[in-house]
Amino acid sequence: MEGIAAAALGIALGGSGLWTLVRRRNVIWKLLGLNVAAGGAILFLVAVAHRPGARPAIEGLGSGPAADPLPQALVLTAIVIHFATLALALVYVIFLTEHRHTQDVHKLEREPEEP
């Protein structure tokens, strides 16, 4: 039950994030949408690792079946990678706001004045 709910939430987050990404014109809004979508994908992996009534994959912590540790470990990596990408993207947004004075995708796509 929990696993299915979490997987469904992950998919829903992915969908709403991607929808924001393709519909909003402001770059930072797009990045926010991506943030939510990537969070959905990460949650999906954790949901796949989950088992009904599972305990954390730590020895000596509770009894009974444990969750699958491998996807959880992968997810740690994915979270940090996503943060790093996001930081770099935001830096580029700052740069572009400074040089082009806009965050609107349609305006950014017009050719800049400088060569």
Binding site: A8, I11, A12, G14, G15, L18, V22, V48, R51, P65
Partner: peptide
């Protein structure tokens, strides 16, 4: 865009359906 997102969500839901119940670890 709407069709793409909806189709993607649908496919994911379809795929996820086959994942449960999960085998033991």
């Amino acid at each position: 865009a709407g069709a793409a997102v909806v189709a993607l969500v649908g496919l994911l839901a379809l795929g996820t359906w086959g994942l449960f119940p999960r085998p033991p670890v």
